[in-house]
Design a protein around this nucleic acid. Structure first.
Length: 224
DNA sequence: GCGACAG
DNA sequence: ATCTTGTCGC
């Protein structure tokens, strides 16, 4: 069913991931006082990716700017290689932003990845901006015991991310460093953006809704 | 060989 | 992620 295009070299892709993984900065290289935060998400129809980004005011989480981008899909979903499917659409939509957000939340993992280079790292390293991976499902690593709301995600003894459990949810959110942010700061930021009604960070939820609405509008137009 | 496997 | 109607509950 899901076939990798023959013009795509999986080994080369893994080589890219391993090489770029060395460029991930796991320290705070962002303003100490955040003014804005962005959320990104992608929805799909046929062979089209609909990417949406929303920039919110960090304090009141109100939307400041939104952008969309439509990109043809040329790669299937393959666990550990999500970047090669989604990054083109995300990079495209980020280019359209008129202002640079202080930090960007990505729906996927950061360094909590078999090659320490998930989608959030991919975007962060290529764009050289602070990013945080916020995923709804685990991809890699072992989740240790919860202490209060959080549990460490470990690769052997190394902490590669955190699982965050909301009081209202059974399933946790998986947080990991994308780029230019420490894990502690990433947790603080995601906690700040947590919603009681949705099991993800608010900026990502906004982007998710925008991408879906855009996609449905497109489908309607095509039918006419 | 078997199970796991972001969106 | 996507294919999909009604239905349960606040």
């Amino acid at each position: 069913m899901k076939k990798i295009p023959k013009n795509f070299d999986v080994k080369k892709a893994r080589g890219i991931q391993s090489a770029l993984a060395k460029r991930v900065i796991k320290k705070d290289v962002l303003p100490s006082s955040l003014k804005t935060i962005a959320g990104v998400d992608v929805s799909y129809t046929q062979n089209l990716a609909v990417a949406a980004v929303a920039i919110l005011d960090y304090d009141n989480l109100e939307t400041i700017e939104v952008q969309f981008s439509l990109v043809k899909i040329c790669f299937p979903y393959v666990p550990t290689l999500l970047s090669f499917r989604e990054a083109p659409a995300i990079l495209s939509v980020l280019k359209k932003l008129k202002s640079e957000p202080d930090v960007c939340l990505i729906d996927g993992h950061g360094v909590a990845h078999p090659y320490s280079f998930g989608l959030a790292c991919h975007i962060g390293v290529i764009k050289k901006v602070p990013t945080i991976g916020v995923a709804k499902n685990k991809l890699f690593g072992e989740v240790s015991k919860f202490e209060h709301n959080t549990a460490k995600i470990k690769d052997n003894s190394e902490v590669i991310g955190l699982a965050l459990l909301k009081s209202t949810c059974r399933r946790p959110l998986y947080i990991s460093v994308g780029n230019m942010v420490s894990l502690d700061k990433a947790l603080e930021i995601v906690k700040h953006c947590i919603s009681n009604n949705y099991r993800t960070a608010i900026p990502i939820m906004i982007a998710h809704k925008l991408a879906n609405r855009k996609k449905h509008n497109l489908v309607k137009r095509i039918k006419k």
